[in-house]
Design a protein around this nucleic acid. Structure first.
Length: 469
RNA sequence: GCCCGGGUGGCCGAGCGGCUAGGCGGCGGGCUGCAGACCCGCUCUACAGGGGUUCAAAUCCCCUCCCGGGCUCCA
């Protein structure tokens, strides 16, 4: 039985989708006005693993993510650069996709751009006004939080707490807690026509419109980082439930812990802003994934380069084990030791999946994986061969795990550039043999290379190579 | 100020009433022409501090200290 923590109830609950084994899953995507940083990586890797696990568990998951391409920050940045905001958004969206690819995140079924849902957003706002949950002022259309009794239920805030605000509220609002559905703007800014005049959507409405369009009034999982709980997700509940009348809008609210660098939230002014693209240049993305798996998705993580390096070593040791297992010769006899390993393996499976079932407890599952690795290494140390069926079982299990975690997915391949370097080393060593007069060995190298299609030609003590046609 | 999370061994990080988590690093040993990988052992009875509850507390309760997040920009 799969159980998952629900921010709404603050409890771990049994996971039961609305419609059989179909899972509607939505995660708040990025605002594309800058390169993505490791905080994004943390969040999206966490949901990638959740989606992968649900699928491995037999659920048919539709994973939907929005791309916020209409937003104040985008407009400001575009203004600074003198470019069109949508063009700027497309550019950073492309970088975002590249980063997701680099991190091995392919689990999202559909990315939805806010700008392509303006009609749906306008329709949704109309419904909210008609039902008396929203009102128009000279600056925009606002959601009337006093009309929605449940406002605050997700973030567990009392109504009086909602009156506290850091930013000066728009004076036309009835209540400081009310939030914008439509912002009226001048024609010189990017925007769209609406029944309330030219302008653009508020921050929270796009997600609700996209969800209602693709999934309808109720979904199974809605995710995002913990910082989005209030006001963003609170507002989404208000918009959706007020508009459709169906409760709950979301069956399981998931929130991932925040990532800090040097104990503080990343910011450019602090100089602790680490981009995904800078990490993957120097480090194995799988090491980053493993680093995140070492802690629970809801726990905060303080990023340290030393942790990433430590995870890289851990990853290497797992790869070594897998390689040894792949290469060991199979036989048909089951030894006493192998019997024990088989029992251990059955036990491992039980533990491993029960930990993942328990609110995706990857730290404990990963711990089990390392114990398994150590057990496999021991047996590979103690005997030359491995019982064929056992070898097969272990390898297929590891493959399944690698699919869930998105690690150990690289097959050892040599790309062309590397192959050339290897050839150069070989030619260099052969040259040294010739200088020493060890022609027999040098000729052997030349002959064996010729057999596989590589021709060596000596010109004095220089050697060049070409491929046989 | 109010509301949430946290503070665990050299480092990272689980556990959340009794049952050796795990990883990384270091040291010693085994294996090895050398290196690497791997195995064994040690570092490792650690849980911010102070009270309390309990047969039993890192885990529950109270107080204090420190850190992070939210309180309409945020993954």
């Amino acid at each position: 039985m799969l159980r998952i923590y629900n921010t709404m109830t603050r409890r771990i609950e049994e996971f039961k989708p609305l419609k059989g084994n179909r899972v509607y899953m939505y995660v708040c995507g990025p605002t594309v006005y800058d390169y993505s940083h490791i905080g994004h990586a943390r969040t999206y890797i966490a949901y990638d693993v959740i989606a992968r696990y649900l699928r491995e568990r037999g659920y048919s998951v539709f994973y939907l993510m929005n791309i916020t391409d209409v937003d104040d920050k985008i407009i400001r940045r575009a203004g600074e650069r003198g470019v069109n905001p949508i063009e700027l958004a497309r550019e950073y969206e492309r970088y975002f996709m590249e980063d997701m690819d680099a991190l091995g995140i392919q689990s999202v079924n559909l990315y939805a751009r806010a700008s392509e849902y303006i009609d749906e957003i306008v329709d949704l706002i109309k419904v909210l006004i008609d039902k008396g949950f929203a009102y128009e002022t000279e600056t925009g259309v606002y959601f009337d939080t006093s009309r929605f009794k449940d406002y605050g239920k997700l973030s567990h805030k009392r109504p009086e707490e909602l009156l506290v605000h850091r930013i000066e509220p728009d004076p036309t609002k009835k209540n400081p807690a009310d939030f914008a559905l439509w912002k009226k703007r001048d024609k010189d800014e990017i925007g769209w026509d609406s029944p309330w005049g030219y302008g653009r959507p508020g921050w929270h409405i796009e997600d609700t419109a996209i969800i209602l369009t693709h999934f309808g009034p109720q979904i199974d999982i809605h995710g995002g980082a913990i910082e989005l709980t209030f006001p963003h997700h609170e507002a989404e509940i208000a918009q959706a439930e007020a508009a459709t009348g169906k409760k709950p809008f979301v069956r399981y609210w998931c929130h991932t812990g925040l990532l800090t660098v040097g104990g503080e939230k990343m910011s450019k002014s602090l100089g602790n802003y680490i981009l995904i693209r800078d990490i993957v240049k120097k480090h194995d993305p799988e090491a980053l994934r493993l680093m995140f798996l070492f802690s629970h998705y809801r726990s905060p993580i303080d990023f340290k380069w030393s942790s990433l390096e430590s995870s890289n070593s851990s990853l290497n040791s797992l790869y070594n084990m897998v390689e040894r297992l792949r290469e060991v010769e199979a036989d048909e006899e089951l030894s006493e030791e192998e019997k024990k390993l088989e029992d251990y393996y059955e036990n491992f499976k039980k533990n491993f999946y029960s930990y993942l079932d328990d609110d995706l407890d990857t730290p404990r599952a990963v711990a089990e994986l390392f114990k398994l690795a150590s057990t496999i290494n021991k047996i590979l140390d103690s005997q030359e061969r491995l019982y064929a069926l056992l070898k097969f079982k272990l390898l297929s299990e590891i493959e399944r795990i690698s699919k869930i975690f998105g690690i150990l997915e690289k097959k050892p391949t040599i790309e062309a550039g590397l192959l050339e370097s290897v050839l150069e080393i070989l030619i260099d060593v052969r040259g040294k043999l010739r200088i020493k007069g060890e022609f027999e060995l040098a000729d052997q190298i030349r002959d064996r290379l010729r057999e596989i299609g590589i021709i060596l030609e000596d010109i004095g003590y220089q050697t060049r190579w070409k491929l046989r046609r």
